[in-house]
């Protein structure tokens, strides 16, 4: 499902390209290593369509933050479980064994996810000239089905999901993750209107 036309999707891709770039720069500074980034893939889906996206049952490590403002949404940053462990390992100390990393992961990932989400959404909000108030980040580790139930988007055609797939190449390993924004119908329409008027502004 996509109410967005090709031009609007192009603009969204461009916005997320800049936003995710800013997030990668923050991550790069934290990890003290260069991070190469692919242009993110942006899709607009319903909850039901999203279910098809997660074909594997591997648990996802998710950092979720609510935003309220000119439109409301829930933003989530998701990494496959193993990938999240690798990020924590890179960030903390490669000497630590897996058991210790597992203990430290919730807090570390909450902060990493929060930094990435803030960097990305903050940059996009600046470009769109909108303001929000964000809630505190929450760490979740669930398999895709449980996660969608938790976010109340399972089997739903009501929730509008903006899915941004990110591929980052780190020195030692590649990190693939998804950014997910869930809107209710009125918020989604408002978001759509903002993108539309931004495009009109650009055309003028």
């Amino acid at each position: 499902m996509s109410d967005f036309d090709a031009l609007e999707l192009d603009l969204l891709t461009e916005l997320f390209n800049v936003g995710v770039g800013k997030a990668a720069a923050s991550l790069s500074a934290m990890m003290k290593q260069e991070i190469l980034l692919d242009v993110p893939k942006v899709e607009v889906l319903t909850g039901r369509e999203l279910a098809k996206h997660f074909v594997y049952e591997e648990p996802l490590c998710c950092i979720r933050q609510e935003a309220t403002g000119e439109f409301d949404f829930t933003s989530s940053l998701m990494f496959p479980e193993q990938c999240s462990l690798e990020i924590v390992r890179l960030l903390l100390d490669s000497e630590l064994d897996d058991k210790v990393l597992l203990e430290l992961r919730p807090e570390a990932m909450t902060e990493i996810g929060n930094i990435l989400l803030n960097a990305c959404i903050g940059r996009i909000a600046q470009m769109m000239d909108v303001s929000f108030t964000f809630g505190l980040p929450e760490f979740l580790l669930k398999n895709p089905r449980e996660l969608m139930d938790y976010l109340a988007i399972s089997d739903s055609n009501k929730a509008h999901v903006l899915l941004v797939s990110i591929q980052m190449v780190l020195k030692k390993s590649d990190v693939a993750g998804d950014l997910m924004f869930v809107f209710d119908a009125p918020s989604f329409n408002s978001f759509h209107r903002h993108i539309g008027s931004m495009l009109t502004g650009l055309k003028e």
């Binding site: 570390a108 902060e111 929060n114 909000a125 929000f132 964000f134 809630g135 505190l136 980040p137």
Partner: peptide, 17 residues
Amino acid sequence: EDAITLGMSAHMSSTLN
């Protein structure tokens, strides 16, 4: 600064800070 100017909330863990 982000909280005041952009409304962003953040979490600083004792693990990383």
